[in-house]
Amino acid sequence: MSIIRTLSTSKRVLNQLKHDKRTLALIFIVPPILLTILKYVFDGQSRIFDSIAPMLLGIFPMIMMFLISSIITLRERSSGTLNRLMTMPISKSDFIFGYALAFSIIGLLQALLAAGVMLGLLKVPVVGGTIETLIIAVIASFLGTSLGLFTSAFAKSEFQAIQFMPAFIFPQLLVCGLFVARNNMSRLLQLFADVMPLSYSVDAMKQVANTSGWSSVLIKDIIVVLIFALIALVLGSFTIKRKE
């Protein structure tokens, strides 16, 4: 693995996004707008909003980065650039980690903005603090990127890649504890939720919202999310082939 090639790949991905101002605007503006809308959906029921908003901060970066990374990697696979790169001295890990780093940076910026709106403008109380909130949001974006890189291998078109969101992300969203506490669900769904990474990302955000400091439960949740993300990255690298 080469640090220079990994960083150059990140820089290249960020440059691609820099030239696509509309996508950048959507990445950064949509989460704060959705949070603000939700605030007024629960107008007069601020306790409900205060309990949901931090969880959403663990969900938005994951969904956004999942979508963007799966589409941009699919483009790389279908346009021939990946094929060309694989005839060059770049390693698969340079490519994969370059992408992961670029999208984690975007995830951090997105989380900064969304957390700024949530904590500053919407006055959502978070016991655990801003730094912890941002760290978990970045880890969630890293998870979304890793899953996007992996699943892009199974899509033949951008249309199919988008369909992976309802197929792959929505079930996790339903059972992660955002709508109903997980221990109120059927046993089967609880077991399903236990093996889905989004559950741990949402749990980590709940921990930060309700408790201060780095509790062992919070650290365990973060480690589980990171392990899922790294497994997805490793599996993603297996889907990149020098020989077809």
Binding site: R12, N15, Q16, H19, D20, S79, G80, T81, N83, R84, T87
Partner: peptide, 14 residues
Amino acid sequence: VAYMTQELSVYPDL
């Protein structure tokens, strides 16, 4: 060895 594929294989957004 350099390989120029039939597709353009360049980044259009760069």
